[in-house]
Design a protein around this nucleic acid. Structure first.
Lengths: 108, 108
DNA sequence: ATAAGACTAGTCATATTTTGACAAATTTAT
DNA sequence: ATAAATTTGTCAAAATATGACTAGTCTTAT
C-alpha cells in the first residue's frame, strides 16, 4: 500500500485539480457535477458522492482502489472526529468491528 | 473508564432487557417505541435512535456517559465493519481525524 | 387443540437527511 | 473596472431512516 494523504478528501481533490490547473467549472463538468457543489466539497461543506469515485480516478489517472482507500479513511476519520472518539474508544470500536466479523462468518 | 461490551448495541440492549426480565413490549413502552421496532433494533436490523439514550440509561440505571460510549463505539465499529476497513487503514483514518482536530483549532 | 403471550418479518406513510440545481455575492487576476 | 473563478445561500427533489401497523411463527399453559 502506498502512503495515503493526511488531508481531507476535499482538500485532496483540490490538490489534484490545481495541480492539473483545472477550474472548478472544468472539473465539475468532467464529474457531471455543479461547480458550486464541487466548491463545497473541496471546502468540506458537503461530501463527495462515492458513486463518482471511478470518474475521479479516471480523470486523474489514479488507481481506483487507492482512491477508494483515500475516501474510506476520510469518511471514518470524519466520523471519529465528529463524534470526538478518543483513541481508547476507537480501540473498542475496532474490537466491536472484529466481533461483527466473527459473527458474520458464524452465520454463513 | 470501565470496560465496554464487545457486542453490538442491539445485543447489549437485549442483555439488559432479559436480565431485568422485561418483554419487548414492556421495554418498548418505556422507551416510547414500537415493540416490533425494538425487536429489529436488538437483532441489528435497525439502529437505536441516539435521542433515546437518556431514557435507556435511566431505565437501566446506567451512567449516561458510559452508555453513550457504548453507543459511539458500536456506531464506529459498524462503520469499520461495513466498509471493511483494515487495521492499517483505520490507523490512517485516525491520523486524518487528528488532522481535522488540528485544523479546527487553527481556525478558531 | 387452542388460546395467549413473546417475538419476528413485511409494508407503508411520514420525517429526516442528502443531493442537485440555480441565483447571487464575493474574491482574484488582469 | 471587468471578467473569470470561487463561494454562499436557498430550495425542490431524491434518497434514507423512522414510526406505526399487520400478519405471521413459535412456545407455553390450559
Amino acid at each position: 500500500m502506498t502512503s495515503l494523504m493526511k488531508t481531507t478528501f476535499g482538500e485532496y481533490i483540490r490538490l489534484l485539480r490545481t495541480e492539473k490547473e483545472l477550474t472548478l467549472t472544468q472539473l465539475a463538468a468532467k464529474l457531471d457535477l455543479d461547480s458550486a457543489n464541487l466548491s463545497k466539497i473541496e471546502n468540506g461543506k458537503r461530501d463527495f458522492d462515492e458513486k463518482r469515485l471511478p470518474k475521479l480516478a479516471k480523470i486523474f489517472r489514479i488507481n481506483l482502489k487507492q482512491l477508494s482507500n483515500e475516501y474510506l479513511t476520510d469518511q471514518i476519520g470524519k466520523h471519529i472526529y465528529e463524534t470526538n472518539c478518543s483513541k481508547q474508544l476507537l480501540q473498542v470500536a475496532e474490537e466491536k468491528a472484529e466481533y461483527r466479523r466473527l459473527k458474520s462468518t458464524k452465520t454463513i
